[in-house]
Write a protein that binds this DNA or RNA. Sequence first.
DNA 1: CGTCAGTTATTGAAGTTTCAATATAAGAGT
DNA 2: ACTCTTATATTGAAACTTCAATAACTGACG
Lengths: 162, 162
Amino acid sequence: MVTDARPAPGQAEPRWLTDAEMTTWLTITQLMMLLPTALDRQLRDDAGLTHAHYRILAMLSAEPGGSMRMTRLARSTGTTTTRLSHAVSALEDRGWVVRRACATDKRGQIAALTEEGQAFLRAAAPGHVAEVRRLVFDQLSDDDVVRLGEITAKILPALTEC
Amino acid sequence: MVTDARPAPGQAEPRWLTDAEMTTWLTITQLMMLLPTALDRQLRDDAGLTHAHYRILAMLSAEPGGSMRMTRLARSTGTTTTRLSHAVSALEDRGWVVRRACATDKRGQIAALTEEGQAFLRAAAPGHVAEVRRLVFDQLSDDDVVRLGEITAKILPALTEC
DNA sequence: CGTCAGTTATTGAAGTTTCAATATAAGAGT
DNA sequence: ACTCTTATATTGAAACTTCAATAACTGACG
């Protein structure tokens, strides 16, 4: 379907998708549309932030010192520095994160989780985990979980080399 | 990491994620952040629309008559009627889609692909397919493709029952 | 040292998505 | 026929993301 449109005359013909690839692609894209929306909805309703913003807090909380430099934080949460800049500003307005200057590189900025941010995350995490379990892991066998991790891990490198 | 924050005292303790689940979850969420962005970038640069909008055109083109009712189109592209309404308005402004009244249900609206929309899609598809292949299917074995489709298909029902 | 390409981070405007509210019509039950 | 609930689709405001432009700094090289 996504690839049903045939190339215009004179266009280079790409290697088209096989039936198996097409079936899988339809499923993946559908999941890609629905899962973020579902996670956003639960977090918005119960905690008042998006999944992308939640990820930033969660990533910081896992770091010793609860802080990380912007570029590295962006990379590890799978986002861009622009988006992170805006997001951290929003999180700062709510008092969950603060910015500090980097000691060794004057260009650098360090985002740090506040006490309030920690507390907020502790309160929001159980509900979020329950939803992740309900939507994803309750549907899969132990074997599925491992295999899904292995296969998706193969795709990541192509997405990060840029 | 996403679930490292422990529940506050007095909170109900959820069943936490196992190590294997956590590893897979980190990979999935990273993929969920990066893949849509990568698809959007290619389509924006080469064709000037987002992946979500492209999907609408592609879904319509696969339909006999090149048209579908709004609610069904929303469901089949994994979006909401609100988002679809805005999106179709934007696609209408560009001349790729038109709205028609539904004959059998006066509430209904039907989105239909125009000639220009068809032509545009034919021109944009090869580049998009090439990118999908490069980012996803070139990284996977035939076996991976089938298995990935099977596993992700197990998750979809939980996301659509609502 | 001074220059220059590359890195880091931010800003504002434009585009997209979400939420809440609204308008209209269909269908079920009385 | 009448009422009530549900379904369909849209709108405007607020929030988030993207793009392009900008500012400030680093490190390498002549």
